[in-house]
Design a protein around this nucleic acid. Structure first.
Lengths: 153, 153
DNA sequence: CGCTATAATGCATAATCATGCATTTAGTGC
DNA sequence: GCACTAAATGCATGATTATGCATTATAGCG
């Protein structure tokens, strides 16, 4: 069915260039292009096309995958640290980072994902993380970096 | 409120590592971590965190922005062309590309976005696109490329 | 062509998500 | 510690999205 493909193409186009906040809204836009389908069909089209829906201060909106990432600001750690950080300390090549309750696990994983070269490994409890770095100077460097990310610099 | 931040961090973590299909499901996961909130709160958290919801064959799922793009397969043009292409022809430095009804505009925009160096510009009607290339050989090269993208190679 | 199998769609409705308003909880400054 | 202000949350409900089932359109095929 050629109508379906054309419609889905138009949908991609509309979503890419307009702010589409609901399937009903999309339906109206399609009507303007002489395409009349029900919300049910749009729900299926959106699924097929892999279009994402993200909430925003001013209501939700549909976006193409490309747009979602563009809309994304910073890496995970930068998001979490300012929220969860409580204090940091260290000795030798060890850093002890304290977070708010339940914050250690997420932060530790985010640190792991960053793949800091200074880091040998991390162990996280509930609100405390032990970070083993490669050297004393690595510890100092990383501590500074983490403080900065936490917005405490 | 420190509980909110910790919860949101855990949510990011859960969404990153689990397949979360609904807010109610997320609620259950949080319960397992001794965090009890209502769906309403999760709706707000998800908005605040910029988490996206994308549909899939096996139901919808929440994803972090990073994951959405990763989940995305190919650029727009590669998605559209196989769906909308009908035939292509050309002469001199001009290409005339025919698409299914209503397909020209989306395809033309996608071509523009690709920024092909062979292309000087495009003009799209409803089902026909005129592509002006920089030279006769550029025309041949681009024609081949488009045919390939359309899966007609 | 007419017939069949398959895909696409609509309809009605269930499932899920968002939000206004009231209430509770933290955070601050005496 | 107490009063005060702002943030966070729950509750109830409205809005939006997803889906089972029946129907209709489309693509092949003889």
């Amino acid at each position: 069915m050629t109508k379906k493909r054309a419609r889905q193409a138009v949908i991609l186009d509309l979503v890419a260039h307009h702010v589409v906040g609901s399937q009903e809204e999309l339906r109206q836009l399609l009507l303007g292009r002489q395409m009349d389908v029900t919300q049910a069909t749009l729900s299926r089209d959106i699924r097929d096309l892999g279009i994402a829906r993200v909430g925003g201060e001013d209501g939700a909106r549909y976006m193409l995958p490309e747009q979602v990432s563009a809309h994304d600001d910073k890496p995970l750690l930068a998001n979490l640290l300012p929220q969860l950080f409580s204090r940091i300390d260290g000795v030798g090549e060890l850093i002890v980072l304290h977070t708010v309750a339940s914050g250690a696990q997420p932060i530790a994983e985010a640190i792991d994902q960053e793949d800091f070269e200074e880091v040998m490994g991390t162990i996280a409890g509930d609100d405390t993380i032990l970070i083993v770095t490669r050297s004393s100077s690595a510890r100092l460097a990383l501590t500074a970096r983490l403080l900065e990310l936490a917005g405490e610099s």
